[in-house]
Nucleic acid binder design. Structure first.
Lengths: 213, 213
DNA sequence: TTATTGTATTTTGTATACAAAATTCACAAC
DNA sequence: GTTGTGAATTTTGTATACAAAATACAATAA
């Protein structure tokens, strides 16, 4: 019984989830036969999925030695955030200069549910935040940008494991970005977005310092 | 006789060269068995190489239908340049704030051979230009940045096919960028780099317009 | 002619077999 | 105790076989 036209796709998704959740630990060696058996598939489609993950920088392959879940260290976190800063900043700029601003409604709708609310549900807010940032990229309609952003995005998720700055702090920042885009102020949109991401980067850096002590 | 520990690597390089040179045409369907036979390998390592190319956005895979060499249209060119603008701009900024500026010599050495020369060899200059831009990224020592830049870089090469702005115009721009980095002026370094790429983008846009007429 | 259906061929996706390399581990030499 | 050697085992990389899907094409009906 055939369920999928391409098995490697669900395998890819499953593995990614396993990496993101920590079910597959950073640095862990992937023994193909073992994982293949666990997932009930052969090594061929598994290899396809692993290749995709390797190209996303989530898996490291050493020829003739094996494939390993990548480990992200302190520098990697900073480096990834620098990329996000450049890419999201550019995305905000592109949206600011767009004539058709119909996407604004959708951006705003991410955060309007949290306005005038006494205690914000952090889980829901985290989700909204993810949606907002990926929408920012999506609405540029720049395929290559979407592609390479996505690339840094998953790394962030692996490292961050849900860690976010307090909504109290970021809610206003988000609306400031949206407003700059709405008003067509490209420089302001880019700068605010960069600042926003820089702040998140700093949170991670501080967190890292704490855990090292 | 085993020559490589991983056949897919030379296959990958060969295919990439074939795409860059136009030996494999844009939009062309890749019949795995045929290419595998041509290269004297089986479909397994070929598939690995194709997967890598797919993840680099050079090959498009439609499940159960086949893999095709991607076509890049007018919008793609612009979009790719927008990404380069963001990434290289950020790279220049990072280099400007670096304490250790020992890399400057290497950046300068790309273009010093063309100073005070009557007629510049365009081929040599194109090579120097490629070296300069990839060095800019390399010296940031930001692995993820390197990775995603590389991603846009190959697309550029496929589309551009060696087309460059006249050295007369860009030589000075290059040195201006280097000087801004040397002086530690991050904003200036980023802005000049962005301007430089924006100009190259415009050349491609104009070229495209001409060829459409 | 143009559609349409059924069949043959091609091509993809997956599993599996097998050789070569890497790893493990026991045991000897120092 | 450490180091080195060499089988036994594991694991990877490649080729290949085969089923399922897609495609091409011929034969038939309208």
């Amino acid at each position: 019984m055939i369920q999928y036209t391409d098995l490697s796709q669900p395998i890819y998704k499953r593995l990614k989830e396993m990496i993101r959740s920590g079910e597959l630990k950073q640095g862990e060696k992937i023994i193909q036969e073992k994982i293949a058996e666990e997932l009930g598939v052969s090594r061929t489609p598994l290899m396809k999925a692993l290749l995709a993950l390797e190209n996303e920088y989530l898996v490291e392959s050493i020829p003739r030695r094996g494939m390993y879940i990548r480990t992200f260290d302190y520098d990697d976190i900073i480096n990834i955030y620098v990329c996000r800063e450049a890419l999201e900043g550019m995305a905000a700029r592109l949206l600011a200069v767009k004539k058709d601003k119909s996407f604004i409604k959708e951006l705003e709708s991410c955060f309007t549910p949290f306005l005038n609310v006494k205690t914000i549900d952090v889980n829901a807010y985290t989700k909204a935040d993810e949606t907002f940032h990926s929408s920012l990229i999506k609405f540029t309609e720049n395929k290559p940008l979407d592609n390479i952003y996505f690339f840094s995005d998953i790394h962030d998720k692996v490292v961050r494991q849900g860690l976010v700055r307090p909504p109290k702090e970021t809610l206003e920042e988000h609306f400031n970005i949206i407003n700059a885009i709405k008003q067509g102020d490209a420089d302001q949109a880019e700068n605010l977005t960069r600042y926003h991401i820089k702040k998140s980067k700093e949170l991670l850096i501080n967190q890292q310092k704490k855990s090292k002590q």
